[in-house]
């Protein structure tokens, strides 16, 4: 029996010594994305990542000679994913903020975006301007997002009205069920989401929040790669590649 125990211990130790997969960073560039239509999502027929950002990323990194591998990440821990080398770039409709700039390297902005209100279609009369937000019992938004910044700087709202959530996509469920009255999310996402499935009884309202910019994120030391992407992005703006992609995916650039 002692032998058996010894064997058991040895087996467990051996198991503990799991080998780590070497992370080759040669020709494959790992791009961090989330399921965030129409920017990045999985095509149901091909099973491949597609969307405005996915197509742009594939084209740009392809031109630089990289194979692109899309890696699904958890948005809240995106910086950890980047620093740890799980991914090499973030290209997922990421809004430029001062906080992000401190932690990672950002490319030049490649498109502008705006925050809009998502409400139940039946409430359309009630929410028409920014000031109407004070009427909402609860306002849902993604913590750390552009909406978070706007709402925390806005006057006339009290703490109790604000509901900071994990993901933008979660806020739709809040409004749909009536748990919150308003969600503040990206225009691109709002447009796509209120048109489908269970969310067709929702609507979005543009109340003229300041526009913001989307950029690609890199590790701070990857300045060379970032520089090359900046050149390509400038080129794509010039030759209207970005404009055409916008039309294809219904995104206002």
């Amino acid at each position: 029996m002692k032998k058996f125990l010894a064997l058991l211990c040895t087996a467990l130790l051996a198991l503990g010594a799991v080998t780590f997969a070497a992370c080759g960073r040669d020709d494959t560039l790992k791009v961090g994305v989330t399921k965030y239509p129409p920017m990045d999502y999985i095509d149901e027929t091909t099973g491949e990542w597609t969307g405005f950002d996915a197509e742009l990323a594939r084209k740009a990194f392809g031109e630089l000679g990289y194979d692109v591998e899309f890696v699904e990440i958890v948005w809240e821990t995106k910086i950890v994913s980047l620093q740890s080398g799980e991914i090499d770039a973030i290209w997922n409709g990421m809004t430029v903020t001062d906080e992000l700039r401190q932690n990672i390297l950002l490319s030049d902005p490649y498109m502008t975006n705006q925050q809009v209100l998502v409400i139940r279609a039946a409430d359309a009369e009630k929410y028409k301007t920014q000031a109407d937000l004070s009427k909402a019992s609860k306002i849902a938004f993604e913590g750390g997002s552009a909406a978070d910044t706007i709402l925390s700087e806005m006057e006339g709202l009290n703490e109790g009205q604000l509901l900071s959530m994990e993901k933008q996509a979660d806020t739709f469920l809040e409004v749909k069920t009536g748990s919150s009255d308003v969600a503040v999310v990206d225009l691109a996402l709002a447009k796509e989401t209120v048109a489908q499935g269970d969310y067709t009884d929702l609507a979005y309202v543009n109340v003229g929040f300041a526009t913001e910019e989307f950029a690609v994120g890199f590790r701070k030391e990857d300045t060379e790669l970032c520089q090359k992407i900046n050149e390509l992005l400038a080129k794509y703006k010039e030759d209207n590649t970005i404009g055409q992609l916008g039309e294809k995916y219904g995104v206002t650039v």
Binding site: P37, A169, F172, T193, Q196, G197, D198
Partner: peptide, 9 residues
């Protein structure tokens, strides 16, 4: 992930 495409159930 289904909720992102508008399916809650």
């Amino acid at each position: 992930d289904f909720t992102v495409t508008g399916l809650i159930w």
